Computed example of a mutant assay.
Amino acid sequence: MSNLIETHSDSITDYLSVEYPIVEHFYTIQGEGAHTGRASYFIRTAGCDVNCWWCDVKESWEEEGHPLMKVGELVELVKESGAPFAVITGGEPLLHDLLPLTVALKEAGIKTHIETSGSSPLTGHLDWITLSPKRFKEPTDEIFDYVDELKVVVLTNKDLQWAEKNAARCPEGTQLLLQPEWDTPKSIPLIVDYVKENPQWGISLQTHKFLKVP
């Protein structure tokens, strides 16, 4: 399916000067989800209004205190790394208008992925959308038309019910993944049994933590 949100005709030159608050950016290996094991460039924006208690990057919640980086600078770093795609994550990246960054990456020949809770309006020219919905701040209706990958963090049976509720709204062909919460090992047998009984789902693991890859 296409996840290319329509762009408008602003100059790419104008886009290159747009700034985003950036927590960190680095060339790495995708650690979880459908693209696990692939080389990628991570761009982590600052600011989050979801605030999952199990979040392992709580420093990304506040937008203030992080450096502002221009789109042009970020695009050059991704190009120099040789990464085939960039992953925009957070925080909650959709708190920002991602059109300038994603259009500039596309112009540079770089595919752009996003991982989002979907709780803010969808913006940008995106090649892959991973929706990781949270029960305490639900996704917007519009994002479900574009989801490539639904990845639900599971702690209890309530999260399995939440996963099915969201899966029912995703397009046919969306990859469905359940991911155990890292510090809640009791969720692993829960997920394993569920996937055996419901094989339309798969399991996502945070392999970067096993491999100690940043």
Results as ranks from 00 to 15, higher is better:
110 I>A: 09
30 Q>D: 00
136 F>N: 13
3 N>M: 04
4 L>I: 00
87 V>W: 02
133 P>I: 03
95 L>D: 00
35 H>L: 14
91 G>K: 07
83 A>K: 12
15 Y>M: 09
1 M>H: 14
72 G>Y: 07
171 P>V: 04
20 Y>C: 03
152 V>I: 05
28 T>R: 14
170 C>S: 08
176 L>M: 11
39 A>V: 06
9 S>V: 03
149 E>L: 15
171 P>H: 09
211 L>F: 10
133 P>C: 05
145 D>W: 01
69 M>C: 10
27 Y>M: 08
137 K>A: 00
193 D>P: 07
19 E>H: 04
156 T>C: 11
79 K>P: 06
144 F>R: 10
151 K>C: 07
206 Q>G: 10
36 T>I: 12
116 T>K: 00
16 L>K: 04
102 T>Y: 08
142 E>K: 02
4 L>A: 09
170 C>E: 02
143 I>A: 05
190 L>F: 15
109 G>A: 05
202 G>A: 11
168 A>G: 05
90 G>D: 09
46 A>S: 11
5 I>K: 10
126 L>N: 03
65 G>F: 06
58 K>A: 14
85 F>Q: 04
40 S>W: 03
56 D>T: 08
10 D>A: 12
206 Q>W: 13
72 G>P: 01
75 V>W: 06
45 T>F: 09
112 T>P: 14
94 L>F: 14
164 E>C: 03
111 K>Y: 12
46 A>K: 13
49 D>R: 10
186 K>N: 08
164 E>G: 09
168 A>L: 11
214 P>V: 02
213 V>E: 02
116 T>M: 11
